[in-house]
Design a protein around this nucleic acid. Structure first.
Length: 284
DNA sequence: CGTGTTTGACCAGCGC
DNA sequence: GCGCTGGTCAAACACG
């Protein structure tokens, strides 16, 4: 339970989570991240989930269960750098959702006043991003309303709860700092945005005038590598062998046996061309 | 006035 | 059954 994040949520509900982790030492606020590239796929491109499904070789040992495309609908992007974690909580053998928004709302209400005692509380797929940043609440292109804050048992840092302010959008996120490394901000997204990012309409340029493809690539690589979070986590800190990515950001290895996300990254590289303009991928 | 934050209280899930 | 903990609500408050 007490892990490097002091976070139990990753292990909740008995499903593996997958995280991606990289850092941006400057903690720069990137106006947009891979959410707009990945999250935007909800509206423009096939989700990365499909990619991972099509290329099971990207899945590491143990293979991450990919049971629902929802699990790969990536969350909004932290502005500095990111790790992604995917859960398959909302999958199981539940019938595929008919109406996302409606179900989301029902789910939310169920959490408070469940009418169905036989039915376990269902949660949305979750993604965790570990971001090295001075800022707690990372700008990700969406507007969030804070609805709660909770002190965590094994962490001196509180966890903040945010909800997307978009109408009918039930996406939530939790933001907390790692208890072991306060410079690490752990952002956990839950649910799917039902609307495009407000910032999506703007050109996706970073400070240097380049698209922020690195984040998307890392996310995709991490997602495809299928690293269960509960196993990957400790390695971030205790066995980390930082890998300098060609994209500039430092990516922490996810593999338990020395394999790092870079391997997956290479594999996904071609896949991402479907999502990310080729010139971006060639920038390295 | 609209929007967002703070914060105490409440509830549900889980482990013992 | 009980206590602990995480997650959420909602009133009060702050701010532009």
């Amino acid at each position: 339970m007490e892990d490097v994040l002091g976070n139990s949520s990753f292990l909740a509900n008995n499903f593996p989570l997958q995280i991606m982790f990289d850092s941006n030492s400057e903690g720069d606020k990137l106006p947009l991240g891979f959410m707009e590239l990945l999250g935007a796929q909800d509206f423009t491109s096939p989700p990365l989930f499909d990619i991972a499904q099509q290329f099971p070789s990207l899945v590491t040992d143990p293979p991450m269960k990919i049971e629902s495309p929802d699990a790969f609908n990536p969350p909004a992007t932290p502005n500095s750098s990111s790790i992604s974690s995917a859960s398959s909580e909302a999958v199981n053998d539940e019938p595929v959702k008919v109406d996302d928004q409606e179900e989301d709302q029902q789910t939310t209400k169920k959490q408070l006043k469940p009418k169905n005692k036989n039915q376990k509380r269902q949660r949305e797929p979750r993604f965790a991003f570990m971001t090295k940043s001075e800022v707690d609440h990372l700008e990700d292109g969406y507007r969030w309303r804070k609805y709660g804050q909770k002190a965590l048992k094994n962490s001196p840092f509180p966890r903040s709860y945010y909800r997307c302010t978009g109408t009918l959008c039930n996406v939530k996120k939790r933001v907390e700092r790692s208890s072991t490394d306060p410079s690490i901000v752990v952002t956990t997204y839950e649910g799917q945005h039902t609307h495009p990012s407000p910032l999506m309409l703007r050109p996706k340029l970073n400070g240097s005038g380049h698209l922020n493809s690195d984040i998307a690539i890392e996310a995709a690589a991490g997602a495809a590598s299928g690293m269960p979070m509960q196993r990957a986590q400790p390695h971030f800190y205790h066995q980390h062998q930082q890998q300098q990515l060609p994209f500039g950001n430092t990516l922490f290895p996810l593999g338990h046996n020395g394999s790092c996300i870079n391997a997956g990254l290479l594999k996904v590289h071609g896949l991402l061309q479907d999502i990310i303009p080729s010139h971006i991928l060639n920038e390295d």
